[in-house]
Amino acid sequence: SKGEELFTGVVPILVELDGDVNGHKFSVSGEGEGDATYGKLTLKFICTTGKLPVPWPTLVTTLSYGVQCFSRYPDHMKQHDFFKSAMPEGYVQERTIFFKDDGNYKTRAEVKFEGDTLVNRIELKGIDFKEDGNILGHKLEYNYNSHNVYIMADKQKNGIKVNFKIRHNIEDGSVQLADHYQQNTPIGDGPVLLPDNHYLSTQSALSKDPNEKRDHMVLLEFVTAAGITHGMDELYK
């Protein structure tokens, strides 16, 4: 796709999030870079409003799984890469995230190029959380598991539907599940690639910047598309 050509090198990323969870309002600002050749993201996020009212790991899918245009699609799968094909005009990404036995996040993001920078601007609203639950009670460990993110075409809306389940580790050794339902639709009216069913395999590492006084998260992530085999004719070339 034409959009794919915008991702040949390292691309700067800007992320802006405004959130409200159970009436606790907050903002997060992030910057870093993405390299789609390797499916690599390096980002640093800062809570610009003081202390973040929710655990950082609960925002990873909104912040970095928010820029799935940096996923590495192998050559034989490039015609299934909706995310890059929607660029530079970008796409709207909407999600509902259900935390098992707790509340939910609803998010709406616009992901697009502004100049040479890929920008992810998000509004997040969280409701029905227990004040002493795993999320508002800050009981999650500061780490992140690997996940597969399942993608299918949504021809009606000229976009994709995505769903997956995140496993958050809790300090007591148990797990907090979070079910994600995602819809992506193009902002522009140019042609986009509608994929066959496949998935993104994601690995994320969270860390801290020892010199950063503000509440923050440093993230390194690798994302690769998989799940579609080479056609038989490919094998015999």
Rank of each mutant, 00 (worst) to 15 (best):
L177V: 15
V67A: 11
G115A: 03
D233N: 05
M152V: 13
Y144S: 08
E123V: 13
L14P: 00
K78M: 07
D116E: 11
V28A: 01
K44M: 04
P12L: 03
E141A: 10
D132G: 09
I166S: 12
G9E: 08
K165Q: 14
I170T: 15
A205D: 06
N211S: 10
E234A: 07
F45V: 07
T58S: 14
E33V: 11
H216P: 00
N197D: 15
C69G: 03
D196Y: 05
E16G: 04
D116V: 07
D102N: 02
F222S: 08
I166F: 02
V92A: 06
N145Y: 10
N158H: 04
H198R: 01
P195L: 04
D18G: 08
I46F: 06
G9V: 03
G227E: 07
E5V: 12
P88L: 14
P57S: 08
S27C: 13
E4K: 11
E110Q: 15
Y65C: 00
A178S: 05
G188D: 09
S204C: 07
H76Q: 05
N148Y: 07
S27G: 08
E94G: 03
T58I: 02
N120I: 02
I160S: 02
G159S: 09
L41Q: 01
D75E: 11
V149I: 15
T48A: 04
K2M: 07
K157N: 13
T42S: 15
H24Y: 03
D101E: 09
Y144C: 11
F98Y: 11
L124Q: 00
M77I: 07
K84T: 01
H76C: 08
D102G: 04
N120D: 02
K165M: 15
V162G: 08
L59R: 01
G39S: 02
V54G: 00
Q93R: 00
G133D: 05
I166M: 06
S204P: 01
N184S: 10
G66D: 00
S29C: 15
N120K: 03
G66C: 00
K161E: 10
H24R: 12
L136M: 15
H147Y: 07
V92G: 03
F98V: 08
L193R: 12
I170S: 15
F164I: 06
A86S: 13
P88A: 03
T224A: 11
G133R: 04
H180P: 01
I160T: 07
K25G: 02
